[in-house]
Design a binder for these strands. Structure first.
Lengths: 242, 242
DNA sequence: GACTGTCTTATGGTATACCATCTTACGAAC
DNA sequence: GTTCGTAAGATGGTATACCATAAGACAGTC
């Protein structure tokens, strides 16, 4: 058979203790497919604004730019479509999804629910290493802000939350948040670029971090909620001004 | 160009008031593609347990059964893969996703957060028609229980929540819940089949309904939370017994 | 000159062909 | 009889070919 390397693949769960593999030497194949590589490239490109929202994604053009066949491109587009990053316009074809303002508020609300719950759990369950990582992530965000790199901020912020959710043991929630964030990626970029955002955002995140450090679940919950509320308000302002 | 009929397509937003179309006569094409039809069929089939969890989905076999080419089948599989209903095993190919027990608890937790919030909003915002629909949906669930049709119960329950979220104006949250439910579809079926579940479930849902009817948001919130907690407990028991 | 009909082209939808690799079965050798 | 090597089949990964249709250009007509 061929090789595969999608997204949703079983990275091999525990599977119990079979005869072979009681020791830790399994073969571990990566099985890189063109499809998998292309998926990453395309997703990164969209999330990095190398394709503008609303921009048509002409298949044959993509093939040429990516150096793969239409089969691969189309399957990747289907995947991204299901993720909500690409939308297929009837009788016209795929285009970069244009975020829906009316959905943005809902997305921020859901994020508020999930992130604050994760922050609370994190305060209870995180190990010291994870808490240190959180602090480091905030430093990275700070540095990116100072370097005037909005994309860097975005990337580091994503990292921060990934650590938060992982330390909280909320993998599924993280998947949801990540997927939702993808749909408002451009908005996130704009909120970051808001003047005076730097100090406020860093401050809010440090409050979350501090609360987790103190193992104060409720404070972490509240701080996290406050942070998302701020961002949601910003996004609302931006959308209102468009 | 060809035709399209995926999932994520813009069903044409308001678009403002352009010159043409101030009256309500737009052409409205459905643009049915084989892909779209196949996607529905396959998703329904999986959700209806016509393919068992873990079952391999051999592409050429599916082609034959569905009467379409591999291109279509593969693109549909990519979509379902992104949705989490299908997983691609490296060097082996696609199979029906096997739900991860460790994720089930997380999914129920998220559902608890989102559904209770939706119930609260529903109590505030729902119009009378929607509230009546909710009641009717519960009746349908009741009837399905009495008819001994677990699948009917599942379908009607989904309907109930769809109405709830829609009336609450929480479309995005509904998408999330639906997507999460797909991953624990088999578990939902088993919780429904639990002896003595009938009366309890109906009772809990009626309490939610009643609270919404009374426009008592907090009560709706609590009732909804209680319901999800019950179901989560059941699922936990079932998983523990496996 | 404006309008209308047609033709071309761009593009997506669908089907098929080919290739690489894994799996399995069979047979030979010890 | 067990084990190892090899060959054949199954199956996914990838590429290409063909077709239908929609959008735009162009020309002909009133």
């Amino acid at each position: 058979m061929g090789a595969t390397a999608g997204m949703t693949m079983r990275t091999d769960a525990p599977e119990g203790a079979e005869l072979p593999g009681a020791d830790g030497m399994k073969v571990e194949r990566q099985s890189v497919t063109l499809r998998g590589l292309t998926l990453e490239k395309m997703r990164d490109a969209i999330l990095d604004f190398r394709f503008k929202p609303g921009e048509r994604l002409v298949e044959r053009t993509l093939c040429e730019r990516l150096g793969v066949s239409r089969s691969v491109v189309r399957e990747v587009l289907r995947h991204l479509e299901a993720e909500g990053l690409v939308e297929t316009i009837p009788n016209q074809g795929p285009a970069v999804a244009r975020p829906d303002p009316s959905q943005a508020a809902q997305i921020y609300e859901i994020r508020g629910l999930l992130e604050s719950e994760a922050a609370r759990a994190c305060a209870v369950e995180a190990d010291a290493a994870a808490i240190a990582e959180l602090g480091a992530a905030i430093d990275t965000i700070d540095a990116a802000f100072k370097a005037g790199s909005p994309r860097g901020v975005l990337k580091a912020t994503t990292e921060f939350y990934e650590i938060l959710f992982r330390a909280a043991g909320k993998r599924v929630a993280w998947d949801v948040v990540r997927s939702l964030n993808a749909r408002i990626n451009h908005l996130r970029g704009m909120t970051i670029a808001t003047p005076g955002r730097h100090a406020q955002a860093i401050g809010e995140m440090r409050r979350v971090h501090e609360a987790i450090r103190r193992r104060d679940g409720d404070a972490a919950y509240e701080a996290s909620r406050a942070h998302v509320a701020t961002v949601a308000g910003l996004a609302d302002t931006i959308l209102g001004g468009l």
